[in-house]
Computed example of a mutant assay.
Amino acid sequence: MKKQTVWLLTLFSLMVVLSVYYLNQSGDASFLTLSPHQSEVPTTQTPDASTGEVDQESSGELTPSAMEDDLFSFVRLEMSAKRGERLEQLETVIAGENVSSEEKWQAFEEIDRINQLETGEIILEETLKSRYSFEDVLVRTLDEAVVVSIKSASLTKADANNVMRDLYDELGPVRVEVKHYPVESS
């Protein structure tokens, strides 16, 4: 088997084992969906290209659940597995004998784009964690938006605006959603 296939299967197996373990520990799957008394209203902000100012549309909090400690790790693992599958597909295209040089070049460019995206997300996460002393930060780049999930004891509107400005400075005018996952302060 290829080294990447073994790695992917190992990550998938780990994900399944952890999921079963936490389901058995918590007794329910409430961490997967919001229960009726919980609400999640993401902070969605769009920077104004002319001024760099950020318009705040709404804000909200997600009530903590038993799985929040590992939720960010689980999402990171899932994103990594999906990207790993796509990278393997692209490497197969590059290695293919009956593939045109243009298709190989496009596959190579997509591999480079995925690697840059992943590196950029990691850098943004670490920068935001250190700059604002958040417990954890998860940055996900989706097709139409960048979703920033922040785990901290509190998140003020000023902090959310500062995060938005940081992303605007780094990525340019993109739609950004900030989601807050509160934790008990120690």
Score class of each variant (00 low, 15 high):
24 N>E: 14
105 W>V: 15
144 E>M: 08
106 Q>C: 10
20 V>M: 10
14 L>V: 15
156 T>P: 03
99 V>A: 14
121 E>M: 08
31 F>G: 13
95 A>E: 11
8 L>H: 01
17 V>Y: 12
57 E>P: 02
91 E>W: 04
44 T>S: 07
105 W>T: 15
46 T>G: 07
122 I>A: 07
23 L>R: 05
127 T>G: 11
87 L>Y: 01
92 T>V: 13
162 N>H: 09
57 E>W: 11
105 W>F: 14
148 V>N: 00
58 S>Q: 14
177 E>I: 03
150 I>T: 04
43 T>L: 09
155 L>T: 02
178 V>R: 00
82 K>D: 11
34 L>Y: 15
65 S>Q: 12
164 M>E: 04
172 G>D: 09
19 S>H: 07
131 R>P: 02
50 S>W: 05
29 A>W: 10
8 L>V: 05
144 E>N: 12
185 S>L: 13
169 D>Q: 10
86 R>G: 09
139 V>Q: 00
98 N>M: 11
32 L>V: 14
106 Q>I: 14
23 L>C: 13
125 E>S: 03
49 A>T: 12
177 E>C: 06
50 S>K: 06
40 E>W: 11
35 S>E: 14
63 T>F: 12
118 E>C: 04
110 E>V: 13
110 E>G: 06
66 A>P: 02
131 R>N: 12
